[in-house]
Amino acid sequence: MAVFSIDVREACRKKRTGKGQWTYGFVNELLNREYKIVLLTDQNLPKEWEGSSSEVIIYPGGFSWHLRVSRYLKKNLFDSIYISPTSFIVPALVSKRIKTIPVIHDLIAFQKGKHDIKAKIVERLLLKKAIKSAHRAMTNSDNTRNDLVKKYPFASNKTTAIFAGPSDVKTSGNSSDEKIILCVGTLSPRKNQLRLIKAYQKLPDSLKSKYKLILAGGRGWNDKKIIKEAQHTDGVDWIGYVKEDKYHELLRTCTMLVLPSLYEGFGLQILDAEKMGVPVLCSDMGSLTEVAGNCAVVVNPLDIESIKDGLEKILSDESLRSRLQEEGPVQSEKYSWKRTVDLFLDAI
């Protein structure tokens, strides 16, 4: 039976973002299967994993972490399959004799526009080598797989889309009683909060007086203009990073979720919102329409008027909101962590 060694560092962070949430959901499900698992990290595990039968190896963080993991894999050459859900460094460092499975969430590093410089350089330098050396490669959506194969045609025969599942929503149903337009994501140009704020500013006064725009997410990069615009716009409130319980509470009480990103590899927030029966507005870029299906109002994220029109459409049309609330949960049932892990195991 295969031994899975997994980089779970991002899942162990106190403030998990997209890739960390994906890793957390994937590992949660894999721990329920009959496999020997080695969890490789640089800090303590989430409490809910502490009672599992998995082996835990903690190495100091930084670049030395990757070197230590590489040495560990070389010593366990014939026993281990290494799953790398958030980094391409180890898959690029080790030889082909070691079975590695990198997970590609997006190709943001190869997109035009501003992005985290360190991540951009590392991914551009290492992704091709990591894919070439890999036993298999996984993506979180068909869209990301298509982007990857378009850039690296050789990846076609070894790459499988395994998608994702919703978070563990602890509340049931959406009450929409707080009159909130909710946007969840790290502040950055790619997440497009600045255009969203400007679109909100253009809404009729009758809607702005009734609905407030809540931005939930930690600071990212090139975010000063976003923060300044939020602080100087009546009805807009940036509340910073929120923990899972608060995130679920916001979903339970908001009127709609907005994800106007310029590019996303998946869009976990859309899946969570649809599961809760929350009407969704999303952009027509990246994989967002793939995840949302026909259960969202789709806009051009580069056009402030398009975003404004989408907001106004959902806020003003009760029958549309009702349809999205009914159809969203049905769409969300297409995705689950069980399905993701099943697809992963079938692919290897």
Rank of each mutant, 00 (worst) to 15 (best):
137 A>W: 08
196 L>C: 05
140 N>Q: 02
177 D>I: 14
143 N>S: 12
140 N>H: 04
175 S>F: 10
137 A>T: 15
179 K>T: 07
182 L>C: 09
129 K>M: 07
168 D>Q: 12
130 A>K: 00
138 M>I: 12
148 L>Q: 05
155 A>N: 08
188 S>I: 07
139 T>W: 10
192 N>T: 09
147 D>F: 05
180 I>C: 08
145 R>Y: 03
197 I>L: 08
176 S>T: 09
168 D>K: 13
195 R>C: 06
162 I>H: 01
134 A>G: 01
136 R>D: 02
149 V>E: 09
129 K>G: 02
157 N>W: 06
177 D>V: 15
159 T>K: 02
198 K>C: 00
172 S>W: 00
153 P>A: 14
150 K>V: 00
177 D>C: 12
176 S>P: 02
162 I>A: 03
147 D>R: 08
183 C>G: 15
165 G>A: 03
135 H>A: 04
144 T>L: 08
140 N>F: 07
152 Y>H: 03
160 T>D: 01
129 K>V: 14
193 Q>Y: 12
142 D>V: 09
148 L>P: 04
151 K>N: 01
154 F>C: 02
193 Q>M: 15
145 R>F: 05
176 S>G: 09
140 N>G: 05
150 K>F: 08
160 T>P: 00
195 R>M: 11
131 I>C: 04
174 N>P: 05
152 Y>P: 02
170 K>P: 00
130 A>F: 02
195 R>I: 13
198 K>D: 08
166 P>N: 14
